[in-house]
């Protein structure tokens, strides 16, 4: 019971500190903006730890953060192998192939109004479908190893990327296109000098959406069959063995990989579209 009381107290203290910070005079400063969510996160982890210990929650329901941390540091070789298999081989290669294919398709479609009119609704429709469902088919076609996961990722990222790129290539205003016309610019001149740069914010939006989709695709596809390595494989077998600390360790890896991947794309975006109002801040 003492632990539970501690948990309640910790929550109170965390919230009080954050309230003071958020409503204090420096709430606009960068340090406070970083500190408040961090304090909140640490408070949640602390409360979680205390409650799990205080209430003797069994491991098969919810492991304590410290247990997860221990499991994480003990299993780094396994986690690394899973990371390489699922993220680097499956997700990343599928992401690259899918995004490049969608980009090239978008350029091809862009030249024909008729194609664009036809493909855009079909593409937006496909982007809303539960495409992870193609995983069993693609596993059947490409085998258990990472190739089938990459294929799932290709299919998943293709349509969001296509729709965003096509929309982006339409982004240049009529006036800007008229200007190119007055210079008697060729199709490719106006493509590279005007429409491609103007499309960049949209393209990066597609690239960012696709980072998360690629991880989802690679992990879920492993639920349908995989070699004995990989994050999805590890999650489903560890769940079966009720070693939830391992499942949580994999989820930590997935979270780190997801944020890092997204963060990298966002950083490149910042460098490329520095001129866009949303980046100028």
């Amino acid at each position: 019971m003492v632990m539970v009381a501690f948990a309640v107290a910790l929550w109170g203290v965390g919230w009080w500190v954050n309230t003071r910070l958020a409503e204090g005079p420096n709430s606009g400063s960068r340090a406070v903006q970083l500190a408040v969510p961090l304090i909140f996160g640490l408070t949640v982890i602390g409360v979680w730890e205390l409650l799990v210990r205080g209430l003797d929650v069994p491991l098969v329901i919810l492991p304590a953060p410290s247990t997860i941390a221990v499991r994480f540091s003990d299993s780094i070789p396994i986690l690394w192998a899973d990371f390489v298999q699922t993220i680097l081989k499956g997700a990343l290669s599928g992401y690259l192939i899918g995004c490049i294919a969608a980009f090239l398709t978008a350029i091809a479609v862009d030249r024909s109004d008729f194609l664009r009119m036809g493909l855009l609704p079909v593409g937006s429709f496909a982007a809303a479908l539960p495409i992870v469902g193609t995983a069993p088919i693609l596993v059947m076609w490409f085998g258990f190893d990472w190739e089938s996961k990459a294929a799932v990722v290709v299919v998943m990222v293709f349509f969001p990327m296509l729709v965003n790129t096509v929309a982006g290539l339409r982004e240049a205003t009529a006036m800007q296109r008229d200007l190119m016309e007055t210079y008697a610019a060729s199709y490719w001149q106006s493509f590279f000098k005007l429409r491609l740069p103007a499309a960049m914010p949209f393209i990066f939006n597609g690239l960012k959406i696709s980072t998360t989709l690629s991880l989802i695709g690679a992990i879920v596809a492993e639920f349908f069959g995989s070699p004995t390595v990989g994050m999805g494989f590890r999650i489903s077998t560890s769940v079966g063995q009720l070693s939830l600390d391992m499942v949580w360790a994999e989820i930590v890896v997935a979270a780190l990989a997801g944020t890092a991947f997204y963060g990298m794309v966002a950083m490149i975006e910042k460098a490329v579209t520095f001129w866009h109002p949303s980046q100028r801040g």
Binding site: M175, M200, W275
Partner: peptide, 16 residues
């Protein structure tokens, strides 16, 4: 033949 320069209502400079 690029016989003229055209100035539009808005400057329309490329922000990038």
């Amino acid at each position: 033949k690029r016989a003229y320069g055209y100035v539009f209502q808005a400057a329309g400079l490329y922000p990038w």
